[in-house]
């Protein structure tokens, strides 16, 4: 599906730290590390899944890429151009290439603007076409996300639409500029399963028909497996495992990924699916933060090694990377 050599987006050593303000004047709060030295490549034409629980930093990653927030260190490169700190014309140019679909379709559409206004807004901002070509473009885009007949939706307002329809409108708004790269941040977490499947299939179609490269941010391994070519599992701001989606989910190597899979209710799918049992029943007490971020909850950890040093990503097989000492040890042995 994708060419290995052509990466559209390169994330190099990106860290993001939030400084929380103290309760009183002058007292500085704790620093919260949302992302710690993340490096990823996303290839042309693939759907890349970023899987993590709440607070893992997955949403922050998406916001950094579209420039809603700035990185603390590291660089993000799109098509060979650094995108951190873009201003003015260069920023506007970048906005045409990278778009985002937000989590909550009830919040991401302006209630005071009609569907036509919302979907055509990017065209207006970037000065594309005149009134009639814009209308045609909006019509076409609405049709491509399954809102037909599109003219019926032109003058409707978000509150008249269902959640699924709203999310389609949000997708249409993101797609109308024909972007190269689209980030969708849990686009279906507010929607019912049957509607989610519709949205998934629209995203798949965008890739298959238009070749749009996508970053799909989700908490669900199942959704990632369905949609993505490759996935990265992220835990408390650190990459745990990166690899081809099917490989990572069917044959996970990191204890955290294994714990995530254990937690998925499996009734009826695999009666005797094996359990990895890599999660401690009770968290370990850890004095210092020097070790692996999953160490406090990891049943497979070596006390002496995992608690002292952070493991780096090491390659297992074809494009499968895991950040775990256990595997390093396995390799050595």
């Amino acid at each position: 599906m994708h060419k290995r050599d052509e990466s559209v987006l390169e994330i190099r050593d990106v860290s993001k730290i939030y400084k929380t303000r103290g309760a009183f004047f002058g007292s500085s709060g704790k620093d919260v590390t949302a992302l710690y030295r993340i490096s990823l490549d996303i290839f042309k034409g693939e759907i890349f899944g970023l899987v993590g629980e709440s607070g893992s930093g997955k949403t922050t990653m998406g916001r950094l890429i579209v420039g809603l927030e700035d990185v603390n260190s590291g660089e993000i490169v799109l098509d060979g151009r650094e995108i951190v700190g873009l201003r003015g014309r260069a920023q506007k140019e970048f906005r045409r290439k990278v778009q985002m679909i937000f989590q909550d379709p009830y919040q991401s559409l302006n209630p005071q603007r009609s569907i036509y206004d919302t979907v055509s807004e990017p065209l207006k901002i970037h000065g594309i076409g005149d009134a009639s070509t814009r209308k045609d473009l909006v019509r076409e885009t609405l049709k491509s996300v399954g809102l037909s007949p599109p003219d019926d939706f032109f003058f409707k307002y978000p509150h008249r639409l269902s959640g699924g329809q709203r999310q389609r409108v949000a997708i249409a708004r993101a797609m109308i500029l024909n972007p190269e790269f689209v980030i969708s941040d849990e686009p279906t977490s507010m929607l019912d399963a049957s509607i989610s499947a519709q949205i998934f299939n629209i995203l798949l179609e965008l890739r298959n028909k238009l070749g749009v490269t996508q970053l799909f941010i989700t908490h669900s391994l199942a959704a990632a497996r369905y949609l993505c070519d490759r996935v990265a599992v992220i835990y408390r701001g650190n990459l745990m495992e990166v690899g081809p989606a099917e490989e990572v989910i069917r044959n996970p190597k990191h204890p955290y990924t294994q714990a995530l899979l254990d937690a998925v209710p499996k009734f009826g799918h695999d009666r005797d699916a094996k359990r990895y049992g890599t999660l401690l029943a009770k968290d370990r007490d850890v004095e210092e933060d020097a070790g692996c971020v999953f160490f406090p909850r990891c049943a497979a950890a070596h006390e002496d090694r995992c608690g002292r040093k952070q493991p780096g990503l090491s390659q297992l097989g074809d494009g499968h990377f895991v950040a775990c000492f256990r595997l390093e040890a396995m390799h050595e042995a």
Binding site: Q91, K92, Q107, N110, P122, H126
Partner: peptide
């Protein structure tokens, strides 16, 4: 803080546009 403002930003809207088209009517 609302996502629709962020969506406008991602679409490339200027501050002027965000204030007068998105915030003011609300």
């Amino acid at each position: 803080q609302r996502p629709f403002i962020e969506a406008a930003k991602v679409a490339g809207a200027s501050h002027f546009r965000i204030i007068f088209v998105h915030i003011m009517p609300n």
